[in-house]
């Protein structure tokens, strides 16, 4: 079966620093794939190279069976690659519903692409799809609220709704749980867990509890290279991973769950 997303020989340097050095990655269709690694491992750079925000110095990126290495972020989004960003302010002057509506209008209520029309015409299908997405992420009650009035956790949920509005085949999340309270984090986990299996999920995350609760596949990056790619259990068992994170001998403190 064709992987949903893959890359081969990916490289990117910043001056003398090789931030990403010959990375191969395969995300199988329907997988819940986590990308982890200690600080400076190159997670965010790999994420950006895959999403198209940044161009690689070498290597290829494939979305399903299509080479998208030369395509822009916008074009990749149109082909079904959707993302949430690590640092985002969302759209301060819009309500939650208007925010989602923007993406729904862009991609059509049923996915498959549409154009944003300049003039406001009421589309019952758009409204219905917005309501459905907001309900899915648990924001039905705050749909009419302006974005700045939402809590941090609610904004993250809104981002997921926004990403889902793009009707993705691959959903990429950059540190979705960053700055969340345990309760908010738990709700996010439930939301992601409940996504249909047609949507492949690739996420970068610091919170290893969340990683091992959600992921069925984990890739560990260290110093810009892939250290290990395997099941959560294989990663938990790896001495190399432990050393990369903590140096030697403190395995218990790392994996508490």
């Amino acid at each position: 079966m064709t992987p949903a997303l893959s890359c081969h020989g990916l490289r990117r340097s910043f001056g003398a620093l090789r931030a990403v050095d010959d990375v191969d990655l395969t995300v199988e269709a329907g997988a819940r794939h986590a990308l982890i690694g200690p600080n400076g491992a190159g997670k965010s750079t790999v994420f950006r190279l895959l999403s198209g925000r940044m161009r690689p110095d070498a290597g290829t990126v494939r979305l399903a069976d299509r080479d998208v290495t030369r395509l822009s972020e916008v074009a990749r989004c149109r082909l079904g690659m959707s993302q949430t960003l690590q640092h985002t302010s969302l759209f301060a002057s819009l309500t939650a519903a208007e925010t989602v509506a923007l993406a729904v209008r862009r991609h059509g209520p049923t996915g498959g692409g549409a154009r944003i029309e300049p003039w406001p015409r009421r589309h019952p299908a758009v409204d219905a799809r917005c309501a459905e997405l907001l309900a899915d992420v648990g924001l039905a009650d705050v749909a009419a609220r302006p974005v700045p009035a939402l809590s941090h956790g609610e904004r993250k949920q809104l981002e997921v709704a926004l990403a889902l509005a793009c009707a993705p085949t691959v959903l990429m999340l950059d540190e979705p749980a960053a700055g969340m309270s345990p309760a908010e984090s738990a709700r996010l986990l439930a939301l992601l867990d409940g996504l249909p299996r047609e949507v492949t999920v690739l996420f970068v995350e610091h919170d290893l509890d969340l990683v091992f609760d959600l992921a069925d596949r984990v890739t560990v990056l260290h110093l810009g290279r892939v250290l290990l790619s395997g099941t959560p259990d294989e990663v938990r068992a790896s001495d190399a991973v432990r050393e990369a994170y903590l140096g030697t001998g403190r395995r218990e403190e790392l994996f508490t769950s």
């Binding site: 960003l85 002057s93 923007l102 993406a103």
Partner: peptide
């Protein structure tokens, strides 16, 4: 208008607009 919403969205967060697939 939707164009206006897009303009306001771009004012607020240009990267996010690109992330939802708008050039």
């Amino acid at each position: 208008t939707t164009l206006g919403a897009l303009v306001r969205a771009t004012v607020a967060d240009r990267d996010m607009v690109a992330a939802i697939g708008v050039d």
